[in-house]
Amino acid sequence: MSGFDQGRGSDLLDVHERARFEQLVLPHLDAAFNLARWLLRRREDSEDVTQEAMLRAYRFFRGFHGGDARAWLLQIVRNTCYTWLEKNRPVELMSEFDEELHPQPSVSPESLAIAGDNRERLGRALETLPPRFREVLVLRELEGCSYKEIATITAIPIGTVMSALARARQRLQRALTQPPVEEARREL
């Protein structure tokens, strides 16, 4: 939660703070759920963790002094997701996060379009990526976040957001154009 004062966590908020929360933070519930859903992959888990994250956000709300409410909320959601993963599925966080871009045969836009035409297959391909790749793609492509917002939410330096995205995109292309079974086995 770097960069944000978390405020007093224990006291109840009053009705005015509640109204302000409804106005500033609650409109981003869909984005919060979407991030949790792609980080945790399973819907039920995502619902539980989103609920927990929203309540945490509410408790920390006094520490939010304006600015980008969506980034503030998504940062809390992401942290809550990682804490949950560490506790419940630590293996997933151990997946390698290689820093290198690997030379690979370039994928043609046409083959990509054909492979990506199937929503389920696209979703599965995205799910095979390590969480740290998945999250930058979801934030950039599904939520339309800027590099600055991505840096805030994921706590990676802004200078490395671009290369993280480059690697994530390469991984997704590879996952999409490789046969799904083989891809799944390789990731295990």
Partner: peptide, 18 residues
């Protein structure tokens, strides 16, 4: 290729509402 990937992702309907 990257533009193609982007358009696939953006019109994929992968975004889920609460």
């Amino acid at each position: 290729t990257e533009e193609s990937l982007r358009s696939i992702l953006q019109r994929s309907g992968l975004c889920e509402s609460a």
